[in-house]
């Protein structure tokens, strides 16, 4: 018993020293706090059980979190070599390849994964993202469409990415992109700002002048503070050669600023805005004269 306890203590002492040594040597390179320690611990576990594919997989995940993608891939491939046939491994390999821009390899790995689980939405999304990078826009769009319409909780980011693919596939398909935005607004809430902003961009890019102005009015009416929106609307009105309306919008912007509390008036974005208003106003006046 005494011997066992002594042996255990000796083992723990040696193990602790090894972890500390690893940490010391890797400190400058690995500065992610407890992730560094967990990688060190996993390394010790691997040294004690070098043929355990699960351990390599787990360390690969840690390296990946640590953004040490080469090490992560090395561990995943070692895990595979040692017999890991788990579908999650294919996903991770695909993801690391994707993150390191090795898109062909990434596609191969994710397709292996999808052979095992053809309906996994995360995998379908990754596949669509890989296809997009490989300029296979049509297939990418098909895949992403499936994801968008089947994912339980989409995010604004997903909708924006979907729109981007729609326009990559056909750079004139603003109708499709705007429908996707509307679908997003329907799913996420009608006032989701990043989608409303994207809607404005697409309406502008597709030259739908009156709808652009309606969209600016939406922002003006929806938000507590609208000085920035008045200015942006005025700028757009100037661009489409409607100087008088622009002039009125600038007046509204100035009044909106005047109605702010002093704190907001003195914020640098508002101070800059005042300058921009002044400059646009004089440019409109010059146009008139």
């Amino acid at each position: 018993m005494i011997f066992n306890k002594k042996g255990y203590l000796h083992f723990m002492f040696k193990r602790t020293l090894l972890i500390l040594l690893f940490l010391l040597l890797s400190m400058p390179m690995l500065a992610h706090g407890d992730l560094t320690i967990r990688i060190a611990e996993k390394t010790i576990e691997i040294s004690e059980d070098p043929n355990n594919f699960e351990l390599y997989y787990q360390r690969g995940l840690l390296y990946q979190q640590h953004m040490e993608f080469d090490y992560a891939l090395e561990d995943y491939l070692k895990s595979q070599f040692l017999g890991n046939t788990n579908k999650a491994l294919h996903y991770q390999i695909a993801e690391v390849h994707f993150l390191t821009a090795a898109y062909t390899e990434a596609l191969q790995s994710i397709e292996w994964y999808l052979e095992l689980d053809s309906k996994d939405l995360s995998a379908k999304k990754l596949q669509a993202q890989i296809l997009f990078q490989l300029q296979s826009h049509k297939k990418s769009l098909e895949g992403y469409r499936y994801v968008i319409h089947n994912m339980k909780d989409i995010r604004p980011e997903d909708v924006l990415e979907y729109c981007n693919i729609i326009l990559a596939e056909n750079n004139k398909n603003y109708k499709g992109a705007l429908e996707a935005v509307e679908y997003g607004l329907d799913q996420l809430g009608p006032h989701t700002i990043s989608l409303q902003l994207k809607k404005l961009d697409y309406l502008k890019d597709s030259g739908q002048t009156e709808k652009v102005l309606e969209q600016y009015n939406y922002f003006i009416l929806e938000y507590n503070r609208n000085e920035f929106w008045y200015y942006k609307k005025a700028k757009y009105l100037t661009e489409i050669n409607r100087p008088h309306e622009a002039f009125i919008s600038l007046k509204l912007a100035s009044v909106a600023i005047e109605q702010l509390n002093a704190k907001f008036k003195n914020m640098s974005p508002v101070i800059e805005l005042k300058e921009q208003i002044k400059s646009l106003e004089s440019s409109i006046n010059n146009q008139k004269s």
Partner: peptide, 10 residues
């Protein structure tokens, strides 16, 4: 959706 104030993030 800004139910508690602020701007809707979605």
């Amino acid at each position: 959706n800004a139910q508690a104030g602020g701007t809707a993030s979605g």
